[in-house]
Design a protein around this nucleic acid. Structure first.
Lengths: 354, 354
DNA sequence: CGGAAAATGAGGTACGTTCCTCAAAATTTC
DNA sequence: GAAATTTTGAGGAACGTACCTCATTTTCCG
């Protein structure tokens, strides 16, 4: 059997109360006694049973996640993943509340944030651009002792960032583009919804870095902003393709992949260009299968969601993180390694619904 | 507050004992009563507190993992990951025992397996080739109600497989090779330690599939077996390169990447060929950075380890799996997206060691 | 309708920890 | 060495669930 606090008390020759004081760093214990207890802990290899501890503490983790209400498949998929991770975590005293806020209204966001402390929320995850309002709201939460996690797009004053290294993601897109085009010659188009968000800037920087250094034979054209509007996208792409006769690749840094592939389809260019984009949404999946998108740089929303919960819980408990586990991978998806949609086919030992 | 069994009892108008019988599927309750309880559960949104349940059950998960004692960096990294995952899981009543067995001696393996039931092990994970001895051992464990998980290389009679889809991995390697070589012309060499293990066979199959279908301009040479011996590897590669003048790419399906890059270095070919291999070991990492390996298809050992534990626990509890989470990704690593080695740099709310 | 069988209730103990109170012992201070 | 202070001990209640026993009620069957 695993040793319990009682074993520690016996081994250290002290009472249970004292062991408890040491374990929970409560005052009123002599150094000498603390040492004795710690030695017993080491000697017996005691490991605190967190499930029992949480039960006794009556601790439960109320966590809030705030996402913009943009109608993007990626955000939708992230929201779904969060909801699922939340309900899976319900069995372990964790409760996740998902809020959506109007993307263009930072004040609405701030308003939601300010109500959280009342409902004893132990942590907040936030996907939002870095505006002064957001920055202040984050600061104020942290001042109240509530940890804040930045989701997908980093916020420098958050406690932790859950998402990929976007600079590296841009570099990865760069190598793929460069190698797939055989190093040149040719031109490459770069598209982005908005060139202001931190993640876009970093992707572009990483992409350029690699293209300049490793593929000087390829000319990277100026970034085009599409503002999330299908019409703009269509117009901008058509114009560019008309003016730049040697375009062989397109790097779509974020969003709008649906409109992009449709535009290319309409122009009869589908499959003729090397197209690299971000986020493996359902639509991008089929585009990959059809061959109208060549490669996708993506981050797994399930992983993002679970990591968010784990990190918030760890922060709430002031426990260290398993950095390796929280490192969100930059995944490269080609037609040949599209992750299968989950479905289980294995026989089980026993099929009763427990 | 979250509803508890007591609330359910009150709501359903039955006693606590009855609720308990329903929750734990014990006999002696009328259908009508079962229905009433379940309605109360739904109505109040009751979620069983697993931490309390496990505590009450006195349940603890003793899990055994068996790895061959091969001195491969991949296996070493897997062993490390398992040990780490094991100690992280210790706080939640899980105990992992790691066994190593002589790779060429299936009987030693069987011997270890047969001792496990005595020590009330609730599940076993196993990385081993599919021999008759192993097959029987697995069958016998399952007959005793102990779930068995196949690690890295699949065993058809296991309860679950933790690892990547090796056929898809081979296909992925194929597309990368094909595209990086611009579709041809040229020759591609394929190396494997042993062409008998299930994972190797599947990788080869996937690779060929893609090469034949999508890159007919590239000639894939016959697979070469290296048997894990550096000398053989060296000889085989040298011979092949001498006989096949148009080799532009090498696909190393498993193991021996260290010897391979060294051989290429010695021959002055480093960086001149497109080399794709498997598993991001420390050595492969540096080879990627130096440019002597072009791309790596890998599976994350941390993920493998954690998934193994989660799956075994779920199987032991007869609970459903989160298929999405247990899906091990086929990761593509290039020089530009090498995952950073973990190190934390964020400021924390508070630095005390809790 | 009576008796047997099945279903339910009441109550208790246990899991390993937290956190509390109050008393007793040890140590420090003057 | 007595008083003040600090440290320690003993014990108990609680967290939410599991699982046990024994008594009581309800239902079923002939």
């Amino acid at each position: 059997m695993r040793p319990t606090v009682i074993d520690i008390a016996r081994e250290a020759g002290v009472s249970l109360a004292t062991v408890d004081r040491v374990l929970n760093a409560r005052p009123g214990v002599r150094d000498k006694t603390i040492r004795a207890v710690n030695e017993a802990i080491v000697k017996l290899g005691y490991v605190r049973d967190l499930t029992a501890a949480n039960l006794a503490r009556g601790r439960s983790y109320r966590v809030a996640v705030l996402l913009p209400d943009t109608e993007s498949q990626f955000i939708q998929s992230l929201a779904d993943a969060l909801t699922e991770a939340g309900s899976a975590a319900a069995t372990s005293r964790t409760e996740l509340k998902l809020h959506r806020f109007p993307a263009e209204d930072p004040h609405a966001l701030a308003a939601v944030l300010s109500t959280l402390p009342d409902r004893d929320t132990v942590g907040v995850a936030l996907m939002a651009p870095e505006t002064p309002v957001v920055r202040d709201a984050v600061r104020s939460l942290r001042a109240k002792g509530i940890p804040v996690v930045a989701l997908v797009s980093d916020l420098p004053n958050a406690d932790h960032f859950v998402g990929i290294d976007n600079r590296a993601a841009g570099r990865t897109a760069g190598v793929m583009m460069g190698r797939f085009l055989g190093g040149g010659p040719g031109q490459v188009m770069v598209l982005g919804q908005s060139l202001l968000a931190r993640d876009m800037i970093e992707r572009r920087r990483g992409f350029d870095e690699v293209m300049q250094r490793d593929f000087p034979g390829l000319e990277v054209l100026q970034s085009l902003e599409t503002h999330g509007s299908p019409a703009t996208m269509r117009q901008v792409v058509a114009e560019m393709l008309a003016n730049a006769p040697h375009v062989r690749g397109i790097y779509a840094m974020g969003g709008g992949s649906r409109t992009l592939t449709q535009t290319l389809d309409d122009m009869g260019l589908s499959g003729k260009l090397t197209v690299i984009c971000h986020e493996l949404t359902p639509h991008v999946r089929t585009a990959l299968e059809r061959g109208s998108i060549t490669a996708v740089i993506t981050q797994n929303t399930g992983h993002l969601a679970r990591s968010t919960l784990r990190v918030l819980r760890a922060k709430a408990d002031n426990q260290p993180l398993d950095e390796g586990q929280e490192q969100i991978r930059i995944e490269i998806v080609l037609r040949e390694n599209i992750p299968p949609l989950p479905d289980s086919t294995r026989p089980s030992l026993d099929d009763k619904v427990a």
